[in-house]
Design a protein around this nucleic acid. Structure first.
Ligand SMILES: [Mn+2]
Ligand SMILES: [Mn+2]
Ligand SMILES: [Zn+2]
Ligand SMILES: [Zn+2]
Lengths: 141, 141
DNA sequence: TTTAATAATCGTTTTTATTCCTATTTAATA
DNA sequence: TATTAAATAGGAATAAAAACGATTATTAAA
């Protein structure tokens, strides 16, 4: 219990962030929930454990963790920001039926264009939309 | 004048959409403004020509044109939907300094992953973020 | 351990993009 | 031209995210 918290305490500390109970718990939540949750899902799930946790703290903390490069922000749909703990480059697939977001590996070095010569590229994003395997086979039945 | 409108009238007609002055003008605007404008920019620019044009008409029309596959929707940032007339697959680069969005060509057939075998892919999106050439050279000065 | 300074949290309010509502107007068609 | 069905205008409603300010927690020094 204390042991696992030490990990997140250290992560926050290394980024020069003040250690708070909420920050440790939110970071731990993201590490254990790799489903790309929205701020709202983070809040509603964590209220069960931290009943006094506020919406504004969740938003502010998630943004702070993104700024510190401890989390990444995903904008697949326009109406929701999603967060993820996995910082390794990978692509995303969102199923239009079930709404699940799937990770997939991709060689990001292949993604280049002569038109961007002289540009400083800080971030590469790849996302697909469609229907996932499970939903396709469910349709046949 | 009439001649150019015939083009957009035909495009709407072929999709089974009712022809209206607003729809023709909005489609024409998107064709002539390949800068990936937001609904708000479409409205404010077009108010100069159509002063009675309403917000709700712009939103409803843009959505209808996307549904009819006459426009494509871009979600690069979470807080704004952008629209574009160019339906050919291409990547996008958003400059974090000036906010400009640049198009670039890319071989989309290269984008695949074994993990997505059996998935139905309807849409592929690629966007980068960083600093554009112009902003970089402006920084040196 | 106490204290003081600083930063985070909470609860609320504000902002803003988008959608919804409906009376009125416009377009399609017979 | 008259009928009908759909689109528009204008404003109200919605909801995610950010801003605000009082309170509380964290940190580091006394
Ligand atoms: Mn992911
Ligand atoms: Mn484009
Ligand atoms: Zn699915
Ligand atoms: Zn720039």
């Amino acid at each position: 219990m204390e042991k696992t918290h030490e990990k997140y305490t250290k992560m926050l500390d290394e980024k020069g962030m003040k250690i708070s109970h909420q920050r440790i718990k939110i970071l731990e939540y993201l590490a254990n929930n790799l489903c790309h949750p929205t701020a709202d899902k983070v809040l509603s799930d964590m209220k069960k454990v931290l009943p006094t946790l506020s919406k504004s703290t969740v938003y502010k903390t998630l943004n702070a963790l993104v700024d510190a490069n401890l989390l990444k922000e995903l904008t697949i749909e326009d109406n929701e920001i999603r967060y993820e703990y996995n910082l390794v480059d990978h692509g995303h697939f969102k199923c239009e039926k079930c709404g699940n977001i799937y990770d997939f590996d991709l060689d990001f070095s292949m993604l280049q264009s002569d038109k961007l010569n002289g540009f400083k590229i800080n971030e590469k994003n790849v996302f697909f939309k469609g229907v996932c395997k499970d939903c396709l086979s469910a349709d046949k039945a």
